[in-house]
């Protein structure tokens, strides 16, 4: 936490410092312009919208694939930051996606006794999956994962927080 935060503060400082050299340049709108750099764009949303759990019984294309999980006849796959794909594997040769559980900020999943445990940003969320026609939030432990953010194991943002993936911005 400490090291990463320090590094990210350093990096952000460097990005900001890099603007100084271009201080006198302004574009047509009068904004200071400079070189293109990689940065992270914060995500803003009302908490009740950002944390709503919702099951949709239609398949959804995978955008940012993450961890996989097997439970009974189902395969689950994280879509990093947006939710969990549900695959019916009752007949493997006909296995297919059947639905999607919207869990913003998720990266991990485990299931025990029809209760699905995942993270929504830094909350632990328990989702009742006993009945696919009534998938709903069962309980929530807020702020338990002090260090979590959504991520796939292959993508490692340099700091904690609610950010989108690297994004081109013009300083």
């Amino acid at each position: 936490m400490g090291l990463r935060s320090s590094i990210s503060i350093l990096l952000i400082s460097l990005i900001l410092v890099s603007c100084w050299g271009y201080y006198n340049r302004t574009d047509d709108d009068g904004f200071v312009s400079g070189p293109r750099v990689l940065g992270f764009r914060p995500v803003y949303a009302a908490e009740n919208i950002a944390k709503t759990i919702l099951y949709t019984a239609t398949p959804k294309a995978v955008v940012n694939p993450g961890n996989i999980y097997a439970y009974q006849n189902y395969i689950l796959q994280i879509d990093a930051g947006t939710g969990i794909h549900v695959i019916d594997n009752t007949v493997p040769s006909a296995a297919n996606r059947i639905g999607f559980i919207t869990v913003r900020g998720c990266s991990q999943v485990s299931v025990k006794d029809n209760k699905l445990y995942t993270n929504s940003y830094d909350d632990l969320v328990v989702i009742d999956c006993a009945n696919l026609n009534n998938v709903h939030e069962y309980s929530r432990l807020k702020g338990v994962f002090t260090e979590y953010r959504y991520e796939s194991p292959l993508a490692q943002p340099p700091a904690s927080g609610y950010y989108q993936c690297p994004y081109m911005i013009v300083l």
């Binding site: 996989i68 999980y69 485990s110 445990y117 995942t118």
Partner: peptide, 10 residues
């Protein structure tokens, strides 16, 4: 209880 992949953090 289900089974996770090896890259899990849960």
């Amino acid at each position: 209880t289900g089974v996770g992949g090896s890259l899990t953090k849960f």
